[in-house]
Amino acid sequence: MTSAAPTEALSPDAAPPPSTRPLIELRDVTRILSGVVDTTLVRDIDLCIDRGEFVAVTGPSGSGKSSLLYLLGLLDLPTSGDVLIDGRSTTDMDEAERARTRLAMLGFVFQFHFLLPEFTALGNVMIPMRKLGRLPERQMRQRATEILLSLGLDGQVDKRPEQLSGGQRQRVAIARALANDPPVILADEPTGSLDSKSSTQVFDILQSLVDTQGRTVITVTHDPVAAARCRRRIHLVDGRMVSDEKV
């Protein structure tokens, strides 16, 4: 297990430069799904992830990989413990503030593309930008087009999701995750429903996000080949972190 570099260790009066603070930190996070029988999704996870890391979360099915990712991505709230993004606790944020953090800091890629069927590729990529509303319309359009082109989607910009192939859709989904230039990309089995050629392509893109753009990519995968390409591998069994190796 990585020993977390807790923020408390830093001098409280001197605000630490952002780069020295872990980007995402999990402190003793446990998530229990209450029901007739309580199900423990993840238990006692302590984890620090820094900028520029390429992390694979592996484990058998039902081991809590995706649950961990959802907790990292503020889609779910821990039953106990805390998730800190850029040094800020998220458990005491209100719902709107967590949504805003997701919008600006985190980009999601799921196993299924989850594009909105009524919008074009460009329209889908522009949705998070329009929600954030930081850029004027024309610049949004320009930036969205650039991202799509950089992912090899020239000529597909104005097509609707149903007119695109599976690999293309997944690349549009990645473009959408990148829309607001978030430091973290969270991917949940991004290649799970793709053929091997498209899988390789998508993984190449994820790798380049880390290598050339300095983003943090955390991906859940059960594909050992893909996992092997990541520089840090976290292995979960029954909701507990059993190994955390860095290459």
Partner: peptide, 16 residues
């Protein structure tokens, strides 16, 4: 429901 889920994951709040 799926679109609602994805919009929320993108950063739409309950109010939106």
């Amino acid at each position: 429901a799926r679109d609602i889920a994805i919009l929320k994951s993108l950063g739409f709040a309950e109010g939106d």
